[in-house]
Nucleic acid binder design. Structure first.
Lengths: 197, 197
DNA sequence: AAATGCATGTAACGCGTTACATGATTTT
DNA sequence: AAAATCATGTAACGCGTTACATGCATTT
């Protein structure tokens, strides 16, 4: 069976190169940093951390804190860094797309244009929010003094910005088209009623 | 447990509204029509067709042809069309992104810029090819006389065009940045060697 | 003679989400 | 008093891919 290699463990290793963290922290950090192009659920994070620890790629120590619950803090090991380097040297596999909005639009002749326009609008709303966060992130990277990762972080946020701007432009156009279709079928309906009576 | 609803059956139903087809045909048609935003493997298509038939959403008849192997040809039923309409009336769920290229770039400080540039190049090559197919598809939709689905097909291909153009623009920029980083670390390396000797 | 395409399927496997469980603390 | 957040996990489930199996026809 082919390597599926799904990078769910490597995102953990990668973030641990920046700073030792707990599973919970990793979840939060993923959302905040790579969230716009990668996500990971806790049902994935905790078991994978255990596997990484069992393989010697990370080490863990229990941190006790008065009042607050204990946390398991993980650090990457030399072996873990090596694994990270190996992973980085392998060609990334292209993602297989699955866009349900586009699928429904493709079959849009069987649906209400008004409803479809709503779908496009709410997608645009969602993406506008993400774009705002990316702009903010971009500004922050520029403001804070250079980390070794800074140029790369800029590249990935730039990707998001360009992609989302393209989506938003498309959404604008598409809503206009859908409205026009709606008007046309509405007047066609009226005409039919007139002809029928 | 929440509805996962993954639309794998609906894409089959949807294409069968256009024309009765076999499982094999559906696989080919998916690749050719919605392939740039939706994919489906045969290991998914055949079992799902059986389920749809068992539920009365499609009917099947065996087609015997001299020389060639038999084919099961599926047609959508009234019940199937109703199911399609219901599905279209439900909000599409936003896709969760998983872009491995961006993930590797994000951790690019630990990798070779030359290698990363190669990754970006090959992604651009792949997407340029898809863009070419989309341009061709767009032209075909314009050329052939209006189907009820035509305006919607144009919307989804337009989405792909805008998105891919954004990606390609980003790829150009990014390769330049990566080359600059590469030069800088190369000269920094030289300087070190000079200083050391 | 070998490889590719047509055509239909099944089995195994793993990835990933969702739901559930627990319990303490902080905020509303 | 209730809700949300911190914090860590496990179990169940289903989705989807990959690999395998079969066999005939056509192409190289």
């Amino acid at each position: 069976m082919a390597k599926r290699s799904s990078s769910s463990t490597e995102v953990l290793l990668g973030l641990l190169t920046i700073e030792p963290m707990s599973g919970y922290d990793l979840g939060q950090t993923i959302r905040a940093s790579v969230g716009h192009f990668w996500n990971e659920s806790y049902g994935q994070i905790y078991p994978n951390l255990k596997k990484l620890a069992a393989g010697g790629f990370v080490s863990s120590k229990t941190e006790r804190r008065k009042g607050k619950p204990d946390r398991q803090v993980y650090s990457i090991t030399a072996k873990g860094r090596q694994r990270m380097a190996n992973w980085l040297a392998v060609d990334p596999q292209p993602e297989i797309p699955r866009n349900e909005l586009l699928l429904k639009l493709f079959f849009g002749a069987q649906a209400s244009s008004t409803v479809l326009a709503r779908y496009v609008e709410s997608m645009a709303d969602r993406e506008r929010a993400v774009l705002g966060m990316l702009d903010h992130a971009q500004a922050q990277i520029d403001a804070q003094k250079q980390y070794p990762g800074s140029p790369f972080w800029k590249m990935v946020t730039r990707f998001g910005q360009l992609e989302l701007e393209a989506h938003l432009q498309w959404a604008e156009e598409t809503i206009v088209h859908l409205d026009q279709l709606n008007k046309r079928t509405a007047t066609a309906g009226k005409r039919k009623i007139h002809a029928g009576n």
